[in-house]
């Protein structure tokens, strides 16, 4: 933390003038930035809802209560309900090892955790086809035992887990590194078991970071398109997630229905952003409170 030294002679009005642009420049820059954001962010967002309701509420409701849509919604929720907890456990384990201990190769491990972010979604799907597909490594064995992974739900789950691996870990690692190890060490010295230390000391400290990572992870898990599209096989009513259902409806020129299902995903995005902002706001307040003490 740095402290600001205020010189008695330099009044506040002078400071502001010397380090601020003329008001016309300020106004111009604000308008330019907002124009860019309006064109590329706000208008596309609004258009999703506009197109969804263009043909009326009846068409909208019919589209989202269609049996295929319902099954897509169910599958999306199921996939997220499996992928997010798996990555939650992974995130905690990885952050515990990386943040609480010093060992060689740590930076390499952090890079490996981030790897899925830099792989194209299409490639993320393809690699699972290469392992589990009929032509893949385990393909013949799986076919013999009548286990379907590619073009079935397990493949969708695996591809989703792959693309969302880094979310929770990369949120927790810097947080737990910043918190250090003193509190946990004190607990262990006082006789707490490892599990007690984790539940009573670490978990309360990281719960907001955990939630933050889980929310972002969930948004990506529900919205993933490229990777899931490669492994799903697009079987209506069985291996279609919501984003894939949007694509099918759109390609059938059923635009109102496509945008109706898309509006649900847009709503999910907005809720995600709202929760994310709320947690950030809470953290900031928490920090200033700590700073005041």
């Amino acid at each position: 933390m740095t402290t600001t030294i205020t010189f008695p002679l330099s009044g506040k009005t002078f400071q502001q003038r010397a380090t601020q642009e003329p008001s016309w420049v300020r106004r111009f820059l604000i308008v330019l930035a907002l124009a860019f954001l309006t064109l590329f962010l706000f208008v596309p967002l609004i258009s999703v809802f506009y197109e969804a309701f263009k043909k009326g509420v009846d068409v909208y409701l019919a589209a989202i209560t269609d049996p295929d849509a319902i099954s897509a919604i169910k599958l999306t929720l199921t996939v997220a309900a499996i992928a997010v907890p798996l990555n939650l456990v992974f995130g905690i384990a990885a952050a515990w090892a990386i943040a609480k201990f010093e060992f060689r190769g740590k930076n390499l491990l952090i890079t490996l955790i981030d790897l899925p972010f830099s792989v194209s979604p299409v490639v993320s799907g393809l690699i699972y086809v290469l392992v589990f597909g009929l032509q893949g490594w385990l393909g013949p064995w799986l076919a013999e035992h009548d286990i379907k992974i590619i073009f079935a739900v397990p493949g969708i789950v695996l591809a989703t887990v792959f693309v969302t691996v880094p979310f929770i870990a990369r949120e927790l690692i810097p947080l737990m590194q910043a918190q250090g190890t003193e509190e946990e060490e004190a607990a262990v010295v006082l006789g707490a078991s490892g599990w007690q230390t984790f539940c009573k000391i670490t978990l309360p400290n990281i719960k907001w970071g955990l939630l933050y990572g889980a929310i972002l992870c969930n948004a990506r898990a529900m919205g993933e398109f490229g990777a899931v599209s490669v492994v799903s096989g697009h079987i209506r009513g069985s291996t279609n997630t919501m984003p894939l259902h949007v694509e099918i409806l759109y390609n059938e020129y059923n635009f109102a229905a496509a945008f109706a299902v898309a509006s649900l995903l847009a709503l999910l995005a907005l809720v995600t952003l709202a929760l994310k902002t709320l947690i950030e706001f809470r953290n900031k307040q928490h920090q200033t409170q700590r700073g005041d003490e």
């Binding site: 954001l37 962010l41 706000f42 596309p44 967002l45 258009s47 999703v48 197109e51 979604p121 972002l216 948004a219 529900m222 919205g223 993933e224 398109f225 490229g226 919501m242 984003p243 894939l244 949007v246 694509e247 759109y250 635009f255 496509a258 945008f259 898309a262 995903l265 847009a266 999910l268 995005a269 907005l270 995600t272 952003l273 709202a274 994310k276 902002t277």
Partner: peptide, 17 residues
Amino acid sequence: ALVDLPFALPTAVAGIA
């Protein structure tokens, strides 16, 4: 807060919009 929309909005939705 809305600057992060492209991170949160599924790409297929962005595509059709």
